[in-house]
Each structure stands twice: as C-alpha cells, then as structure tokens.
Amino acid sequence: MLLEYKIEGGDFTQAGYASSQIKKTLKQLNVDPAVIKRVVIALYEAEVNIVAHAYRGVIYAQVEGSGIKLRLEDEGPGIPDIERAMTPGFSTASQQVREMGFGAGMGLPNISDNADSFKIESSVGKGTTLYIEIKFR
C-alpha cells in the first residue's frame, strides 16, 4: 500500500494531518501500538520540519507486511551541514516555529531515535529528502 500526502510549507494549521491519517491506517492494520507510536512520532517530527523549513513537500508511505518505509521529499533551502543539523540543540527555526512549541533542535535526533533506519539527502537551494524505515516486529 502506497500513501501520498502533499504538505505546504508554513501552513501550521494542517501540520500533523498526514501523520494522523497514517496513524489511523496503521491502527486499522492492527500494527502493534508501540510501533505505531514510533512511526507517528518520527513522521510528525519530519512533517513539522517540512512545514517549518521548506516551501512544499510530499510524504510517501509504503506500508508492507514487515514494516513501513517513509520518504519525505521537500522543495526548500536544503541543509548545508547534515551532521550539524543532527546535533541535539542545533536549530535554524524561526520565532514562529518556536512559538508553536518546536525548533529546539530535537526533531532530527528524535526521528533517528525512533527509526530502525534513517537517512538524509539534501541539496542546498533545492531541497531535502528523508528516508525513514520502521519494522513492525
């Protein structure tokens, strides 16, 4: 099953919609609740990142019997130094993002913590793609 959601940069009213829909789908598939929580936490962090930093993006969720593969592609400024972006506490978030309760430099490390596999590809001036995999067992 392949699910696809378009995300608009800067639109915080919709941030979390895709994660919420994927949570409902995984519940219907009777996936272990502890695994669902890891998936949606990682996904929600990544979705908020697109809203906070990119112009627009697409979330692709490939649900298989053994697990879920998430690919989040955005058009945006890109990440010049991925290693630095992964450092807990490092953030380039705007004041608006911080007022929403994010932007503390905890998102990418938390995605990594919840994922079985996590990879970032980024091109400055073009955008960023995140690959997140979580196994169901």
């Binding site: 915080f12 009213t13 979390g16 994660s19 949570k23 609740p33 669902i36 929580k37 929600y44």
Partner: peptide, 15 residues
Amino acid sequence: GLANTQSIRTVEMSD
C-alpha cells in the same frame, strides 16, 4: 500552557 493545534497533535501522536 501552549494552546494551539500542535499541542493537540502532540497529544495525539504521543498516544
């Protein structure tokens, strides 16, 4: 004390 849609979303994602 954070009252916005993201505090509701965070509670939802936190299960």
